[in-house]
Write a protein that binds this DNA or RNA. Structure first.
Lengths: 120, 120
DNA sequence: CAAGCTGTACTACTTCACTAATACAATAAT
DNA sequence: ATTATTGTATTAGTGAAGTAGTACAGCTTG
């Protein structure tokens, strides 16, 4: 369970994204217990409160749930994570097109530009 | 000269981008005098200091230059703005691919996803 | 029961980007 | 020369995001 976070972006949403992704890819299974807030915080090199906040958000969306004294668990309803991930993907792409538009690129030009992209 | 800025992103780089774009598209011509820092600030609904900072950055890159008591002017060397805009475009795209990768999408999958995108 | 895990809550501190206000310097127009 | 407009500089304040530290509550295991 590696946590590669991009400093410079807000950490909270990144953790949310990562959890959703791992659920969708099957790395986290329904009902599975996650590592504790503190442990994740250390592994990710982040403050426990930030992890807590992220998990709270995911709980509100029904993707995770917590049991006091026990830990955090993956919800049985994977569809929620799947849908959330799709929304995130969409939002990020929307933002990308929006930014490129302010630089004077039409959607079609953006598509062409992306197509010829090669590099990681 | 409209200034549509996306709150939520840092304003400084957005102003820099916009100026570069306008130079490249020919809206701002070499040697042309820009509106004053204060006027731009009002038009963009932003603080004059932020505009000043942005222009300073562009001056450092040789894209703009200032004359005390006179105003800000577009440099004769448009290639600099062109190159800067290309760099920005590239960086934004790089970031986009990077974000999508953390969501589990390979570059090829990203390309497919972008291709079928329709919406502004 | 006691110890050691958990989640939860709260307050204070730091940093960054931007805002706000003011003052000063240089140029042009009158 | 005076006035207005410009760039420039400085200081202080604000809000968001994250850090840091501490404390409390509930569950499990020995």
């Amino acid at each position: 369970m590696e946590w590669i976070l991009d400093k410079g972006r807000a950490i909270c949403p990144q953790i949310c994204e990562q959890v959703c992704k791992r659920i969708v890819t099957g790395e986290f299974k329904p009902g599975e217990k996650l590592l504790s807030v503190r442990v994740v915080a250390v592994k990710a090199g982040v403050n426990p409160n930030t992890v807590q906040k992220s998990f709270d958000i995911l709980e509100q969306k029904g993707i995770l749930f917590s049991q006091r004294g026990l830990g955090w668990f993956v919800s049985e309803n994977i569809a929620l994570a799947k849908s959330e991930l799709a929304t995130i993907t969409r939002t990020i792409t929307q933002d990308y097109f929006s930014k490129m538009k302010t630089l004077g690129m039409s959607p079609d030009e953006v598509k062409q530009y992306v197509l010829q992209w090669n590099e990681s």
